[in-house]
């Protein structure tokens, strides 16, 4: 059938979920960074998942690109900040922290699902190999 085994399918899905976890970590790390200008402020990074077909019926997933989200940075009045502009304003990073935490949990769950699939496939393959015993 297809030129893609369950190990390819789940392995690549795990890699994609790991990229997603990395972007979440970057977003949370930069959640409290500030900038002088709106354009310079950090915006959350989001991976774009894309299906990779492996022939008849089977498919895995890959991250086709990582884009900056359109969450707008927020202006905050903080004249004491060395990065403040002439009005005394700074721009906070455009990161939805609660949303990122939810994303992190979802990523972990889906990663675990793929690990479980891999374990099941492995033990069934080994059972098949030991068939005559």
């Amino acid at each position: 059938m297809a030129n893609m085994s369950i190990f390819d399918i789940s392995g690549r899905a795990m890699a994609a979920q790991l990229v997603r976890l990395n972007t979440t970590a970057s977003n949370l790390a930069n959640a409290n960074s500030v900038s002088t200008t709106k354009e310079g402020a950090f915006r959350a990074l989001k991976p774009v998942f894309k299906t990779v077909s492996g022939g008849e019926g089977v498919a895995t997933v890959q991250v086709s690109q990582v884009v900056s989200s359109n969450t707008d940075p927020t202006k905050r009045h903080d004249p004491g900040n060395p990065l403040a502009d002439q009005n005394g304003d700074v721009w906070d990073a455009g990161v939805d922290q609660a949303g990122e935490l939810v994303e992190m949990m979802e990523t972990a769950r889906q990663y675990q699902n793929n690990v479980q699939v891999l374990q099941t496939a492995k033990s069934l393959t080994l059972d098949t190999l030991r068939l005559e015993k």
Partner: peptide, 28 residues
């Protein structure tokens, strides 16, 4: 056994694409 193994790959594909926008789950 062959068909079970194929169906397992198909369901693994669905689980792998759980977060892919516009992916349509398949089965036989």
């Amino acid at each position: 056994l062959k068909l079970r193994s194929q169906r397992m790959a198909l369901l693994a594909s669905n689980i792998a694409n759980a977060a892919t926008p516009n992916y349509k789950a398949r089965d036989f």
